[in-house]
Design a protein around this nucleic acid. Structure first.
Lengths: 151, 151
DNA sequence: TATAATTATCTCGAATTCGAGATAAAGGAT
DNA sequence: ATCCTTTATCTCGAATTCGAGATAATTATA
């Protein structure tokens, strides 16, 4: 099975893309984490709290689907946010298998305070590209991710 | 401190870029991991072994710098690769603080077999973009990552 | 030379994630 | 009504990563 020349080129380019993609996210994520850690949360906790803040109460399982975590991991994260007082578990009256996670007033107050800062922090972290470039990269990454996911 | 309108736009775009970047890498990484897991390694182990395979023996600390892992994590990964017989620790004769990690013949044989397959797998995973697009995204991600890292 | 600062590696415990399996409730089919 | 399948959550143990601190060797400084 011979590999044509253009495939080798494409292979090298793809390899490079994988490395660059990994490195770029690593750099970005580190800065984002610094921002969030300063508010006593980690990236996962923030993602869950942000989901409840913007989308309202969610069955625990739905959270897992949205933030791409296994159900066992969600239990862990929700436990931690509950202990910190930022969310509460609320039993579903219709379906007793289901537990809703619901952001508390304290949680809302926290997000009211930190979300605008978070958004601004990300805007600065992403400062390496102008708006047009961001728009373009977003489209390209969507294509890339969509294709890879459905392989 | 008022935030001008265009900054809000930029903020939303940046937020979206962060989400899309994260999702794209997640999709890609999952497929890459599937490929590598099939050969009895995980992503980190593969990265370390690949470094030694292509760049030769490395002081253990250098490995950490290259693959972006803490020294304690490197100890763990090197331990595992050593147990599997793919690398050996070799004391540095000049500086007795230093230990080199060196890929064994068995490790080389493994990489000879799986690296071409790995490269082809990544080429397929990255099939959502053509070569021109890949080249462009690489440049943009480099800018993005470089800027973020040096904030 | 003796001391201090630096460097490389390792040990240990905590945090985070996952997968497998347990439990319990709902829904569907006979 | 009973049994089977599906669904939602949780428990548990393993894997992986990190940070703090230990150890030991090297280098710089007084």
């Amino acid at each position: 099975m011979e590999t044509p020349e253009f495939c080798t080129e494409d292979g090298n380019l793809s390899l490079k893309l994988f490395v660059v993609l990994t490195r770029a996210l690593q750099s970005v994520e580190e800065k984002v984490m610094q921002d969030i850690k300063g508010h006593g949360l980690n990236l996962t906790e923030f993602a869950v709290l942000e989901l409840l803040y913007h989308k309202g109460d969610q069955p625990i399982q739905k959270i897992g689907e949205k933030v791409l975590l296994a159900s066992s991991s969600i239990t862990y994260v929700v436990d931690k946010l509950e202990k910190k007082g930022y969310l509460a578990r609320i039993a579903c009256p219709n379906d007793r298998r289901v537990t809703f996670a619901s952001i508390t007033t304290i949680g809302i107050n926290l997000m009211d305070e930190i979300f605008p800062k978070h958004k601004e922090a990300i805007r600065q972290i992403m400062g390496g590209l102008n708006m047009e470039e961001k728009q373009f990269v977003i489209e390209e990454l969507k294509k890339l991710g969509y294709y890879a996911k459905n392989l």
